[in-house]
Design a protein around this nucleic acid. Structure first.
Length: 323
DNA sequence: AACCGTCCCAACCGCTCTCCG
DNA sequence: CCGGAGAGCGGTTGGGACGGT
């Protein structure tokens, strides 16, 4: 233990970021892409530690961040995922690419926790809802009305997290599978440029500094079209919950529609185009019943994929990106 | 108007994970 | 395999905004 905090150095500035600092940071990332955070303060002259730069970028400056009030739909997703995954905010955030884990965490701590407590006190405990396909009935049962305003959902499932979560949700009936398997999906820092940002504070009023810098996406960071070939759309919704032995496997998927491109799903250096592997995974799926929350999410995902396709057809430049 | 308490969120802290030599 | 460095994640906090008295 004991590595000294990176921000303990003398001369390292703390506290709120100024617009000038933001612009410097964004300009640098525009040129060099995100990553290698250690080099950022050195090369930019920012008196900030690398961590602070990364945080500022991921939580505030990166394109596509949606600010402002959470929709009831987003609330619903957060509540369900929290019960499923526990306080794994990064995992939850991967379902809401326009929101940062920090935002979700804050929203949970300041709003949803209270809201749930209140509801529980009133005896109205959130129960896993039936799939939304049952329309009006479903809407009544959901903690929040479902508005499909988030077009770019990617679905993340972490079986380990779910099974080891302190929240006993009772979704997984096969402990052997849940114990040894994991899937991790990460949102791209470049995803969802087309988010509509409503904002009020400094940084929000800047509407993301990146927007001020018109051609932000022009250089090294992967663009939507750059990355698009790595997105595999999986027809079988069960595919989406692949259980792969080991850790660190990353799989991109959008369940419920035809495969858009015949590309291997290559995430984190692991390719899933191998047919034998695929079949093994499918076998695992069929051993593993989905809980209602997962079903709900999958059904919802199918609808969102339709939105997604519409968007991409409609010339939207910000398809979900994965890395 | 001044004070006080509460709320909210951006940012920090510290731990864990992952990668690489 | 091991250790160090960097990156990522979740919990916590500081302080500004806001509302009530």
């Amino acid at each position: 233990m004991g590595r000294p905090p990176c921000c303990d150095k003398v001369g390292v500035k703390k506290g709120p970021w100024t617009p000038e600092e933001d612009i410097i940071l964004v300009s640098y990332i525009q040129e060099n892409g995100p990553g290698n955070w250690r080099a950022v303060p050195i090369n930019t002259g920012l008196m900030r530690c690398s961590k602070s730069c990364r945080l500022r970028w991921t939580n505030y400056l990166r394109p596509g961040i949606r600010r402002g009030n959470f929709t009831t739909h987003e609330e619903g997703i957060i509540v369900h995922l929290q019960s499923l995954l526990g306080n794994r905010w990064a995992a939850i955030a991967s379902y809401l690419p326009q929101r940062t884990d920090n935002d979700i965490k804050n929203y949970w701590n300041t709003h949803l926790k209270k809201k749930l407590k209140k509801q529980q006190a009133m005896g109205a405990i959130f129960a896993p809802p039936p799939p939304p396909s049952s329309s009006a009935e479903t809407a009544a049962n959901l903690p929040a009305a479902v508005h499909l305003d988030n077009h770019h959902h990617r679905y993340h499932h972490d079986a380990i997290a779910a099974s080891s979560s302190t929240v006993d949700h009772g979704c997984y009936s096969n402990p052997e599978i849940t114990q040894h398997t994991t899937i991790t999906m990460r949102r791209s820092p470049f995803a969802d440029v087309a988010a509509d940002c409503s904002s009020s504070s400094y940084a929000s009023s800047m509407d993301n500094i990146s927007r001020l810098l018109g051609g932000f996406m022009k250089s090294s960071p992967p663009t939507a079209t750059d990355v698009k070939p790595n997105i595999a759309v999986v027809t079988d919704p069960f595919m989406s919950f692949d259980r792969i032995s080991g850790t660190g496997a990353e799989l991109a998927f959008v369940p419920g529609v035809q495969q858009l491109q015949q590309q291997p799903v290559l995430m984190g250096g692991i390719s899933y185009d191998d047919e034998a592997t695929r079949q093994q995974q499918q076998q695992l799926h069929h051993q593993l019943p989905l809980c209602s929350i997962e079903k709900w999410l999958l059904d919802e995902a199918a609808e969102q994929v339709a939105d997604l396709m519409e968007l991409s057809d409609g010339g939207c430049s910000s398809l979900p990106l994965l890395y």
